[in-house]
């Protein structure tokens, strides 16, 4: 019976997230369109509302081209690795009080572990395509993700220290009972590092070097087409949603809000996640791409020392205040 309930929960979460992913692409095109003083998609349905469905059908029926010199097995496996690692992260995220598919003690570490797996999909897709552009994209991505994963992990250590737990539900509870209600205020340094590392981890502008259109055609997925291309696309957007969820859970107080909304326990969670996602689009429409050496310098010389300083600071304050 419990197994059945878990399966139902998996189906609910998966379905809802897939729907959100579809409309996150629509939201992105609309937001960026309006920021650039144009309308965005308008043709399919009222205000282009059916655009994501049309896109999905198009991608599904497109020819699946596989380059002759590609390493077939790895070429097939790479997009699946990306997608599976992104989707499995959803399992530990508590969307509201008492609703997580698996409420495990090492929730945060589990997400780190899976996000490190996602970089394999990118690297291997670049390698297996046997194409220069894809390969360069894969190499860039592997170096970038390793560098920024360290910064991201360290930026969340402050949160772990304050909450005294790695369990995501416990982190939210600890925030509710803390004096500021959210960790954004005492952990502002950690939050800054987290937000920058979040953009880099999901390969989004201004850190989208692995898929820089002007240099690498499309980067690591240049040789992919049809449904396999769509899998990468899905993985990227689910990755964005996951990162936003972690940000909301660790810094913005999870599902808690200024007042209770009856019947919608996930109301504040969704609002906060969409704030993060809007921030992603805002940054994309505003900032130019970093150069590769700037990216590395920022990661290693600014973010990691800042995150380390934040850990020392948090530890000192915690031991003084007892």
């Amino acid at each position: 019976m419990e197994l059945l309930w878990i399966l139902v929960k998996i189906l609910i979460v998966f379905g809802v997230v897939m729907l959100h992913v579809a409309y996150a692409t629509y939201f992105e095109r609309k937001v960026i369109g309006h920021m650039q003083v144009r309308m965005g998609p308008m043709r399919v349905g009222p205000h282009g509302l059916l655009q994501p469905i049309a896109d999905g059908i198009k991608l599904f029926f497109k020819e699946d081209v596989i380059p002759t010199p590609a390493d077939k097995q790895v070429f097939y496996a790479a997009p699946l690795i990306c997608l599976i690692s992104a989707v499995s992260s959803l399992a530990v995220i508590p969307f509201f009080e008492g609703f997580a598919i698996a409420n495990i003690n090492i929730g945060l570490l589990y997400i780190f572990a899976l996000s490190s797996l996602a970089s394999y999909g990118v690297v291997l897709s670049g390698w297996s395509s046997n194409s220069k552009y894809a390969f360069l994209g894969g190499l860039r991505s592997s170096a970038q993700v390793i560098s920024y994963e360290i910064a991201m992990g360290l930026s969340l250590v402050g949160v772990m220290m304050m909450a005294g737990s790695l369990n995501l539900t416990d982190i939210v509870h600890a925030q509710m009972s803390s004096s500021f209600k959210i960790y954004l205020i005492p952990q502002f340094l950690g939050f800054f590092v987290f937000v920058v590392a979040m953009l880099a981890e999901t390969n989004r502008t201004p850190f989208d070097l692995p898929e820089a259109e002007t240099e690498l055609v499309a980067g690591y997925f240049t040789e992919y087409s049809g449904m396999r291309f769509a899998l990468f696309f899905l993985a990227e957007y689910i990755g964005m949603i996951i990162m936003s969820c972690i940000g909301v859970i660790c810094f913005l107080g999870g599902w808690s809000g200024p007042f209770h909304v009856p019947g919608l326990p996930f109301f504040w969670f969704v609002i906060k996640v969409y704030l993060f996602i809007f921030f992603y689009y805002w940054v994309r429409a505003t900032l130019p791409r970093y150069r590769y050496d700037q990216l590395m310098a920022l990661g290693w010389k600014v973010l990691i020392p800042l995150a380390l300083f934040n850990i020392v600071l948090t530890g000192t304050i915690k031991s003084i205040s007892g």
Partner: peptide
């Protein structure tokens, strides 16, 4: 469980990627 997660993060996430590199 801590060791299990760290095993994946350190070995799969860092060392093996460097090998690949």
């Amino acid at each position: 469980e801590f060791l299990a997660a760290v095993q994946v993060i350190v070995y799969a996430g860092a060392i093996l990627v460097l090998y690949l590199f």
